[in-house]
């Protein structure tokens, strides 16, 4: 009990001693970086719709093109440099997801096609896919129950 209190005290003391990033400045950078990426997405979306594609297909093209750009920028080592400046602005958009797939794929190629790239390509993105699919499954199950019981039309 006493030890726990001491550890807590040390943790609090360390927190006070440790410098942190300037939050407003970092938020402003994230705002700009994220805003720019989303605007690029909007440009692609509008172009697709102007070409007569429907909403879903346009969304698909937008994701695909943003992913390609992010993977290329990751390969050339540029995306991490943008991220150092843009922080969450580069993590939150789908380009951040693509980066989290491309980075381990490139890094672990030295460990082989299967155990290297194959397994480790999912090290960061795997949880996103798992919990995304699981959450949507739970929600879908609830939706199905409500439908079957007649609560939702």
């Amino acid at each position: 009990m006493d030890k726990e209190r001491q550890q807590q005290a040390y943790e609090n003391y360390v927190k006070k001693k440790t410098p942190v990033h300037n939050l407003p400045a970092n938020m402003a950078k994230a705002f700009v970086a994220g805003g720019v990426i989303c605007t690029v997405g909007q440009v692609i979306l509008n172009l697709c719709e102007r070409m007569g594609l429907n909403k879903d297909i346009s969304g698909g093209w937008t994701s695909m093109i943003l992913v390609v750009c992010s993977v290329l920028l990751t390969g050339f080592g540029i995306y991490p440099r943008i991220a150092k400046w843009g922080g969450a602005g580069t993590l939150v958009p789908i380009t951040g997801f693509a980066n989290s797939v491309a980075a381990p794929a490139i890094e672990y190629k030295k460990e082989g096609q299967v155990m290297g790239i194959g397994c480790k390509i999912f090290t960061i993105a795997g949880p996103v896919i798992l919990y995304g699919i699981f959450t949507s499954w739970v929600l879908g199950f609830v939706y199905w129950m409500l439908k079957v019981s007649g609560i939702v039309a």
Binding site: G75, G96, I124
Partner: peptide, 17 residues
């Protein structure tokens, strides 16, 4: 970095500590 943190191409911000 590979052993303890992230692949080098991964886009993360390092804390000041």
């Amino acid at each position: 970095e590979k052993e303890f943190r992230f692949p080098l191409g991964y886009a993360n911000q390092r804390p000041l500590s």
